[in-house]
Design a protein around this nucleic acid. Structure first.
Length: 479
RNA sequence: GUCCCCGUCGUCUAGGGGUCUAGGACACCGGGUUUUCAUCCCGGCAACAGGGGUUCGAAUCCCCUCGGGGAUGCCA
């Protein structure tokens, strides 16, 4: 049986790059009926938090990703938090120490930093020289007396070539002399490091396919070396190209929003994000872009994923979201929008009216939070014109419209029974039509140059507000 | 520096020796429908990194150069 995994570290919010890894793994699971294992890699005790873990789990669920085994639901291969598996790792460390594949290293941080600095100075790659490889008992005791706490290093012998037959990258060959020498597998505080335990967990959890970001490719030979020393079978690998920002460096916060939770807060639809993330790196046969999860699963193949990195296009994601929003049934749109409106203070007891308003402006929203600025024109007796509306209303051509509207409204010639005819009345009186008529009128009533159809706005506004806005506009731009 | 990965429109990509005067989508620009906004429709702009091979023929295969990215942590 095929088993895949997603293994985030709970050191912050779920990043879209990681979310893509989670999504791709999910596609593989669905396509091949595989088991999906969620493992929490929380060995960085300084930065790992339970809050992060919870928010990551919550974001994954929101995205529609369901796992079969994980810290919240258990499974046959648990525990699923690395921090709860230290006893397991200790046994393997013992074994490596006994077989001579690992040894205690008493070099201090400072000593190592100095060696690194020196290597950099000479433009040489840093390779741990194996200083502590053959320490005598006396030397060890002397170090212990100094209060040094040893790390455990994995012994890397020269002349070994490690081949990764990657499902995406193809055959990648590394030489053992190029991986920096003996590397640390257990820190001086006794906590094992990622590169060491990741392979133990992958094999112990029977993971058959490790699908992860390309940044892990250079780590893979280290992991495979450990597997060899421990006589564990290595899983198959697929390294996906990275997600980049517009400047072509690894996508990070400074490029914009990178947390799934923020997309969620801003009112992106999970299906849209899933769809976008899933299609970064490959396409469907037809080239169709708006694709259901079922169809994505149906058409997905690991080998179809491209080898080159992809730049995360915030704009295209937004477009995709708007497509999903358009196709959402009204009831779902209402319940999607309500929380944003409440938070912004746009509340009313007249749900019917509110829903009608939403119906008329939902098309102008690309993401749910857009509703807040779109709905503003329906609230308040007066409106503050934005810059372009203000400029238009200040122009000479607009004055006739404002004055005519004002006169008709104040003379009661136009009243609550016929006010939606005002536009036509102005047209007759001024002879203006088209843009020349509509735009100043729109600006006067809504304070903006963009928005839904005027014919729909006016009845929803009601006569009182309508009138007040005209009066206000008159005072503002004519008086 | 060293190791590894990658290189088709601005972006995501299709293409895997002839069907490529390189296709689609986002973005952008123009036009049309709508007496207004948006939608929608139509059109346009725009790419095989460069140089050598191999071949009758190369975006496609090989080599080099250049460019970009990642790794090089007692982070993951």
């Amino acid at each position: 049986m095929m088993r895949v995994r997603f293994a985030p570290s709970p050191t912050g919010f779920l990043h879209v790059g990681n979310a893509r890894t989670a999504v791709l793994n999910y596609l593989v699971k669905k396509k091949n009926n595989a088991a999906y294992i969620l493992r929490i890699e929380d060995t960085d005790t300084q930065r790992s938090t339970m809050e992060s873990e919870q928010s990551i789990l919550s974001d994954l669920k929101w995205l529609g990703i369901q796992w079969d085994e994980g810290p919240d639901c258990g499974g046959k291969f648990g525990p699923y938090r690395q921090s709860e598996r230290f006893d397991i790792y200790r046994q393997f460390t013992e074994k490596l120490l006994i077989t001579g594949n690992a040894y205690h290293c008493y070099c201090t941080q400072e000593e190592l930093d100095a060696m690194r600095a020196k290597a950099a100075e000479h433009n040489k790659p840093f390779v741990y020289p194996g200083t502590c490889r053959h320490l005598s008992l006396e030397q060890k005791l002397a170090y212990e007396h100094q209060g040094r706490k040893p790390t455990v290093r994995f012994r890397v012998n020269d002349g070994i070539s490690i081949v990764v037959n990657d499902h995406i990258k193809g055959k990648v060959v590394f030489s053992s002399e190029n991986i920096g020498g003996d590397f640390i597998i257990v820190r001086s505080d006794g906590i094992p490091v990622y590169n060491y335990i990741v392979i133990i967990d992958d094999t112990l959890m029977n993971i058959t396919h490790v699908i992860r970001g390309e940044d892990h490719l250079p780590n893979t030979p280290k992991q495979m070396l450990i597997a060899m020393a421990l006589d564990l079978p290595a899983p198959e690998y697929a390294h996906m190209p990275l997600l980049l920002g517009p400047d072509r460096t690894k996508l990070s916060k400074r490029h914009g929003i990178t947390s799934v939770s923020i997309y969620r807060e801003q009112g992106y639809l999970s299906q849209a994000l899933f769809n976008y993330l899933a299609l970064l790196g490959w396409t469907t046969r037809s080239g169709e872009e708006i694709v259901s999860i079922e169809e994505l699963v149906e058409q997905f193949e690991l080998s179809k994923i491209g080898k080159s990195p992809a730049i995360f296009d915030f704009q295209k994601l937004k477009w995709m979201n708007s497509e999903y929003l358009k196709n959402l049934p009204s009831e779902q749109v209402y319940s999607l929008f309500y929380p944003y409106l409440e938070k912004a203070g746009y509340t009313t007891h007249d749900t019917g009216w509110l829903n009608s308003v939403i119906d008329t402006i939902r098309g102008n929203c690309q993401i749910a939070s857009d509703i807040v600025s779109e709905i503003a024109i329906f609230f308040g007796d007066t409106v503050e014109p934005d810059q372009e509306a203000g400029e238009l209303l200040s122009q000479q051509e607009s004055k006739a419209i404002i004055m005519t509207a004002y006169e008709l409204v104040t003379s009661n010639e136009v009243n609550e029974h016929n006010y939606h005819q005002l536009l036509n009345a102005i047209k007759q009186k001024t002879g203006l039509k088209g843009k020349m008529l509509f735009m100043p009128f729109r600006a006067m009533i809504t304070g903006r140059l963009h928005g839904p159809e005027l014919d729909k706005i006016i009845p929803l506004l009601g006569y009182q507000r309508f009138k007040k806005r005209i009066e206000n506009c008159y005072q503002r731009f004519i008086n």
